[in-house]
Write a protein that binds this DNA or RNA. Structure first.
Lengths: 116, 116
DNA sequence: AAGTTGATAAACCGGTTGGTTGAATACACT
DNA sequence: AGTGTATTCAACCAACCGGTTTATCAACTT
């Protein structure tokens, strides 16, 4: 299973997206993450495994707790992938527009490597 | 199955992503889309059904052909969803930048309130 | 040493997915 | 009417998914 597929598949489940949203507020243990869900702890543990394999979280070790941490790199890749198709939804999109937008946020090194 | 999950699930298959990439070059019939793949036409037809249900393509009717067309709106939603997490990968991200972006016209990304 | 807590592992189950083959439908061309 | 072409439908299959329950492991507490 390729990387991108694993990330998309992980994101296809609402429970897992909710877990990511929770982790955006800070690291959490498995029990803390499982608390809001109407399912067993083991089920949540499985979801965490899927997220971990997709590279969306990492798990530490603190005594008997395994604190989970959000890892956003795959989300950046997802975003970049979707941006490939920007010209199909953004009618304002053209090469000049992109250039201007990239300049707007302020003094930035010109060639940022943005592939859009 | 909620909308976002359907889109992510549709994108989780490499064959389906390849179909979208092909459609970015222009509309195509089922046969044309199926040609590069080492699988039956029927299998591709099923993939197209999944993409259609996710809103990623629409299908027209021209005699016995069903030309497929890329629909990018769900990809915009995907991109917007991922952008929620931008601050976790982009260290240049700060509140002012967000504020400026929010002033640009257009729908704002939904705040993940859609658990289950 | 024994018990409690946090978490994972393993076996199981029903439903879904991604593929197959074969039949059916719809249209165009003689 | 009959044939070829484009596509879908239906039945089937193995594999995977999301959940369960039971058992196990690891670390802290008493």
């Amino acid at each position: 299973m390729d990387k991108l597929s694993a990330v998309f598949a992980a994101l296809a489940d609402p429970t897992r997206r909710a877990i990511l949203a929770r982790l955006a507020d800070g690291d959490a243990t498995v029990n803390q993450l499982a608390e809001p869900f109407p399912m067993s702890l083991q089920a949540v543990s499985k979801h965490l495994k899927v997220l971990e394999q997709a590279g969306l979280i990492t798990r530490g070790k603190d005594a008997q707790w395994r604190p989970c941490k959000l890892e956003a790199a795959p989300l950046r890749e997802i975003s970049a992938w979707a941006e490939q198709y920007r010209r199909f939804w953004d009618e304002r999109y053209d090469r000049l527009d992109t250039y201007l937008k990239d300049l707007r946020p302020g003094p930035k090194p010109p060639s940022e490597g943005e592939v859009r």
